[in-house]
């Protein structure tokens, strides 16, 4: 039985290229709001969602806000499990070096700076998804 005040595992699954549609930005805003409710929040980047973390985004030419720096604030919000699917990166000719550096400071380890990105295979991610209480996919 689910009691009130119980911590649940929430995973936000991102599958879209940013800017062409509003999904990536909307999902990021919901993630920030969810941080206020003290839940166990993680993010997954699969398929075209891996482009959301691509480094070097510059939106000056399209007149839209570049929201990629906001992913760097997630560590401050205690959101530090960002699963990136290996096969999705490879299909797109990308590696971890093509993604932004995303880190958090580990409270339990003298505030050491650690990476928030967890590279997983499709199979491993399926397992992690299976352990969630709530999945929000966009």
């Amino acid at each position: 039985m689910d009691g009130e005040g119980q911590t649940k595992k929430f995973m936000f699954v991102n599958r879209k290229v940013p800017y062409g549609t509003v999904y990536a930005l909307e999902s990021l805003e919901v993630v920030l709001i969810s941080a206020a409710f003290d839940q166990d929040v993680s993010l997954a980047f699969v398929d075209d969602g891996v482009y959301q973390l691509k480094n070097g985004q510059s939106t000056d030419g399209i007149g839209m806000k570049n929201f990629s720096p906001t992913y760097k604030a997630l560590g401050d919000y205690d959101i530090n499990k960002l699963y990136v699917e290996k096969e999705s990166l490879e299909e797109r000719g990308l590696s971890l070096d093509d993604l932004m550096e995303l880190t958090y400071e580990d409270e339990d380890d003298d505030w050491a700076e650690k990476t928030s990105i967890i590279l997983v295979s499709r199979e491993e991610l399926a397992e992690v998804m299976d352990q969630q209480d709530v999945l929000i996919s966009s």
């Binding site: 941080a35 206020a36 806000k65 570049n66 720096p69 906001t70 604030a73």
Partner: peptide, 15 residues
């Protein structure tokens, strides 16, 4: 300027 968001109060306090 750095993150393109206004921080939540909790985050502001900690920072």
């Amino acid at each position: 300027e750095e993150y393109q968001i206004a921080p939540a109060v909790r985050v502001l306090t900690k920072a």
